[in-house]
């Protein structure tokens, strides 16, 4: 028996909106720790790792570890039917091939349930080693989204270079080139508006903008984004989900042959 009640149901709606275009089908794993997912895109270039900790749910019952295969497009369709203020409860019986999403309005005057068929998915779980990153960049998530969107109108790839002076995002395309430099800036009114570069060892990596743009669909989940970079290994783009966990995107770099 599985029963997860999330008072802030909009979080789950936002999570699905942020990953449904990157990954088609995925297994959601439920354990005492929480509700999690790890899935790669079909080309094995990007990976999403989600964790919603059990403590973040108002009610969390998971009698045994279970893995539920879902089509994320279909799940997103169902969650779109929940209001932004609705409480969302996920329910599944042992051995059942369906999951039920229950939506309750905040005033309890409307209750809806949507049942979705589960799927068998061959999961390709990757072991992600602990890495020491050369540079960790924390910046407003909306600013990062803006930069990725702007640069993708000029070129297909971005070079992200971190130096002591700041971080530079560069692209080139048929019509020209573009460079955006963000300097460390901690003298702001609100901490979430700061740009912070931790451990600023020089690092320069190239990535496909198409994927970074896809990751920025998670912007509504967090005011800030943390980007961890090291030479010649995948970048981690992390959006923290307040009180609950995180959504992390990994992207393999483009490397000169």
């Amino acid at each position: 028996m599985l029963e997860l009640r999330l008072v802030q149901g909009s979080l789950l709606k936002k999570v699905l909106e942020s990953i449904k275009d990157l990954v088609n089908d995925a297994n959601f794993d439920c354990s005492a720790t929480g509700f999690s997912l790890q899935a790669m895109d079909s080309s094995h270039v990007a990976l999403v790792a989600l964790l919603l900790r059990s403590e973040g749910f108002e009610h969390y019952r998971c009698d045994r570890n279970i893995s539920m295969g879902m089509n994320l497009g279909n799940m997103a369709k169902m969650l779109k039917c929940a209001g932004n203020d609705d409480i969302i409860t996920l329910k599944a019986d042992d051995g059942s091939d369906t999951v039920t999403f229950m939506f309750e309005s905040p005033t309890q005057d409307k209750i809806a349930d949507f049942e979705m068929r589960l799927m068998d998915i061959d999961s390709e779980h990757l072991g992600i080693p602990e890495a020491e990153y050369h540079a960790i960049l924390i910046m407003p998530s909306a600013e990062f989204a803006r930069i990725c969107k702007d640069l993708s109108s000029i070129g297909d790839t971005v070079v992200i270079s971190v130096t002591k002076e700041g971080v530079k995002f560069s692209t080139r395309g048929d019509i020209g080139t573009a460079n955006v430099v963000c300097r460390q800036n901690t003298t702001v009114d609100k901490p979430e508006e700061a740009t912070v570069i931790e451990m600023p060892e020089p690092v320069s990596l190239t990535f496909a903008l198409r994927y970074l743009n896809s990751f920025t669909k998670a912007t509504p989940l967090s005011n800030t984004v943390t980007i961890s970079l090291s030479s010649e290994i995948p970048v981690v783009v992390e959006y923290k989900i307040a009180e609950m966990g995180y959504i992390r995107f990994y992207l393999a770099p483009k490397i000169e042959e």
């Binding site: 790669m40 270039v45 496909a208 290994i233 393999a252």
Partner: peptide, 14 residues
Amino acid sequence: LIKQTMLTQFFEMN
């Protein structure tokens, strides 16, 4: 020539 790598080159399949 710049080539797109895959995650499976960096992470082990479990």
